[in-house]
Design a binder for these strands. Structure first.
Length: 775
DNA sequence: CGGCCCCGCGTTTTT
DNA sequence: CGCGGGGCCG
């Protein structure tokens, strides 16, 4: 083990791995080997005699957890199985099932996805006779989610007069009532939404100290990946679990925080020192993934952000080729260019198609790209978007499974009580729901009790409903004693769904039929996989359902052997890497999205997102943007993204013409002035307001072909950095005249401290600053 | 009750 | 443009 650490890790990584006692904060830049550090750290702990079951390791996807376990297993043998490793949501869902009774849930609770919870919220709003325009379900759902992320229960919310006041002012005075009803109904139906998994864990730990103590005692060592993307609820869970042993190690990179929109707090990283004053910090700054060119380009981009932890990410890899920037006239042309570029590159380099990815800001962009790839006969796969599990036929079958496991699951019941058709229509379902609501019971309870009479439905209808209940009952009786895939098959056949699908001979019908069988295969695969870890385990339908509910975008992609280009949003690409990366649609209003351009905070998150996109690439990075694009059914014209201009042009090769200059007054507002503590960032044309009197050096340069930009200095160009010395007077494009106070070598560049006449003392990187010597 | 048609709206991003 | 929801008719 000792040899392995020495051999495979750099000194900082090794220190981070060896320090297993006490709190530690590992700041890990993109491509700096953070997964390796985490993996080796756990392996090292095990080799030191730490018991696997006392380790809690939280990862961002379940796939990442699986891979880490496999790596540890291959390093050490079979010991990794007992490590609690997975996403926050899956680990704590597991704990909540074990302890469900404390919270008046049963261990069979259903996890609602966004669609289910939105549908319930909508039902509540209309049921309260509120205007759907005034209370858009989607917005209400977002607000509920936000409240939950901050652990604001309905009771707590109601006790905040300022919040209640605010709601009234925004014409949503009934928000709290909706929130309250929603919470009550979830509880009544034995249902939790995604946020509840974290909220209820917090409630469990807060209200039942002995339960908390049990887990504190168990999890003596806690590791957290992607710490920058944890929210308040997650932070508190960690804090309480780690309170006793304080062996908590968090790994994160503030520059890659891209989930603030769903409640993530970068501050969690910054506040770590407050909770654990005797913490140790390790900065992994060497990027092993990408070429120097890509790393430096990404650095120049991210330096435009004001909020960041100071660090110097560097690469010792080859310089590599420049980033290609291509301007297409339309989105169609852009897609064709990307497909063609991939085709040519693949032919030249003979790299596997697995080493190519196309990244975009929104899922909607995938269509054009798919078409272009199909035209070129290039195999591809798509992550996310409308996934397999979102298809109607799949959701129908899953609803059967859900209702089998949790009979109180109203949303599931409503979905399938009339599928296949049992002549139970919408009106009937409405009546059921209404009556159930009155009695504060679930629909299932209503229809399996004499209370069903109170619905006022006619005899034949009641009869049909009871037939359905008998059917479901036969499934429910087997839920704990039958293997998932056996029961699933039986449900498919006996429910009549199989017959219904078989009867549809249209192409779509056949595809639906195949999908359903695909789902059954998936259950089989899942079962096989689980049994590899534990031969004697019995995989029940409930286990499978939990797995499905908590799948992440990356988890849904099954390995197939044929190499394919992958298409995905940048969010979905988090943690992945490829030799060749294409970022498409890099345009104003799309990336950054229009909504993000109004505040510095949002804009900086978008820029971090772009940073994540760039740093996925090992060797080649291609950025494309289109002058016009179909959106909302009509043509929209977009300027190239400001992010392209944030990248130092020295690292870019513009293809197909120069980049037009865009002036956006917001740019200047949100990027100026730079952070005082950080190293001075390069000055760019975008810092100038629209009616800048004279074109700057940079602006003129940008219009010329790339070759002239960095090779031979011209009249207005920078003085060769080697010619500069202390004491000289220089001119800077933005800061004007100044005197060089000192020069200092840094990485592969020189830092200069310059005293400017107008702007005072500045520290500049000569590579970026383009100083001109004045005699 | 079920099927069909029309209208309105959406694009951030996801566990 | 494409989807989902709502309304209308058979």
């Amino acid at each position: 083990m000792e040899d392995i650490l020495k051999r495979d890790l750099n000194p900082t990584q090794e220190k981070a791995v060896r320090n297993i006692q006490g709190p530690s904060l590992i700041i890990a830049g993109a491509g700096s080997g953070k997964t390796r550090v985490l993996t080796y750290r756990i392996a090292y702990m095990l080799s030191k005699g730490v018991s696997p079951s006392s380790i809690l390791s939280l990862t961002f996807t379940n796939k990442a957890a699986k891979e880490m376990k496999n790596r540890i297993r291959s390093m050490l043998g079979k010991q990794s199985a007992d490590i609690q490793m997975g996403t926050f949501h899956s680990i704590f869902a597991g704990i909540l099932r074990k302890e469900a009774l404390y919270l008046k849930y049963t261990r069979y609770f259903t996890i609602y996805d966004v669609t289910d919870s939105k549908s319930l919220i909508k039902k509540i709003i209309t049921g309260m006779k509120l205007d759907i325009k005034q209370y858009p379900p989607k917005e209400i759902q977002g607000r509920i989610s936000k409240a939950k992320n901050n652990l604001m229960t309905p009771e707590a919310y109601r006790n905040k007069p300022d919040l209640i006041d605010q709601d009234k002012k925004r014409q949503q005075g009934a928000f709290i009532d909706i929130y309250e009803r929603y919470s009550k109904q979830c509880r009544r139906d034995n249902v939790m939404d995604f946020d509840d998994l974290l909220v209820n864990t917090n409630i469990l730990f807060r209200q039942f100290p002995d339960v908390l103590a049990k887990y504190q005692a168990q999890f003596q060592y806690i590791l957290v990946d992607e710490y920058q993307d944890t929210n308040y609820a997650q932070y508190l869970i960690l804090k309480s679990l780690a309170a006793v042993h304080k062996n908590i190690s968090v790994v994160g990179d503030d520059a890659q925080s891209i989930y603030a929109f769903r409640g993530a707090r970068i501050e969690n990283i910054l506040n770590f020192k407050n909770d654990y004053p005797n913490y140790k910090v390790y900065k992994l700054e060497q990027n092993y993934r990408s070429t120097k060119n890509i790393v430096n380009a990404a650095n120049s981009l991210i330096s435009c952000n004001r909020d960041q932890i100071e660090k110097q990410i560097f690469s010792k890899n080859e310089d590599g080729i420049r980033i290609k920037v291509f301007q297409a006239s339309t989105d169609t042309e852009e897609a064709l260019y990307v497909a063609d570029e991939i085709f040519v590159t693949q032919n030249e380099t003979h790299k596997s198609l697995d080493e190519f990815t196309i990244l975009y800001r929104t899922n909607a962009q995938s269509r054009q790209l798919e078409e272009a790839l199909r035209k070129k006969n290039i195999k591809y796969k798509i992550y996310g978007g409308l996934s397999f599990y979102q298809r109607k036929e799949i959701k129908d079958l899953l609803a059967y499974f859900r209702l089998t496991v949790n009979p109180k699951d109203n949303e599931a019941l409503k979905r399938i009580i009339n599928y296949p058709s049992r002549k139970i229509g919408l009106k009937t379902i409405e009546k059921l729901e209404e009556t159930a609501g009155k009695h504060e019971i679930s629909i299932w309870e209503l229809i399996t009790r004499p209370t069903i009479i109170e619905t006022g439905l006619n005899k034949p209808t009641i009869n049909r409903i009871q037939q359905f209940a008998i059917l479901m009952h036969s499934f429910q009786a087997k839920v704990d004693e039958t293997e998932a895939f056996v029961l699933a098959g039986e449900i498919l056949k006996t429910s009549g769904a199989h017959f219904d699908l078989l009867n549809d001979k249209s192409p779509e019908g056949i595809s639906r039929f195949e999908n359903v069988h695909e789902l059954l295969n998936g259950i089989q695969d899942y079962t096989d996989e689980k049994k590899q870890e534990n031969e004697n385990a019995m995989i029940k339908l409930g286990d499978y359902l939990e797995n499905v509910a908590l799948l992440s975008t990356q988890d849904t992609m099954k390995d197939d052997n044929e190499p394919k280009v992958s298409l995905m949003t940048i969010h979905a690409a988090k943690g992945l890497e490829f030799d060749n990366v294409y970022i498409a649609g890099v345009e104003e209003d799309l990336f950054p999205g229009r909504m993000s351009t109004f505040s510095r905070f949002d804009l900086e998150e978008e820029r971090r997102l772009f940073y994540v996109a760039m740093t996925r690439a090992r060797e080649k990075l291609v950025i494309t943007h289109a002058g016009s694009r179909y959106r909302f059914g009509s043509v929209q014209f977009n300027d190239p993204s400001r992010f392209i201009k944030d990248i130092n042009p020295e690292f870019i090769e513009f293809e197909g013409g120069a980049l037009p200059i865009v002036n956006d007054p917001f740019d200047a507002m949100f990027n100026d002035p730079p952070a005082p503590k950080a190293v001075e960032k390069p000055v760019r044309s975008k810092l100038r307001p629209k009616q800048s009197p004279a074109k700057t050096v940079m602006e003129t340069r940008r219009l010329r072909p790339i070759e002239k930009q960095s090779v031979s200095p011209e009249v207005e160009d920078a003085t060769d950095t080697a010619a500069l010395a202390e004491g000289q007077t220089v001119k800077h494009a933005r800061f004007g005249k100044g005197v060089i106070l000192s020069l200092q070598k840094a990485n592969n560049d020189t830092k200069a401290v310059v005293m400017f006449e107008q702007h005072g003392e500045k520290t500049l990187l000569l590579k970026f600053a383009k100083l001109k010597l004045i005699d």
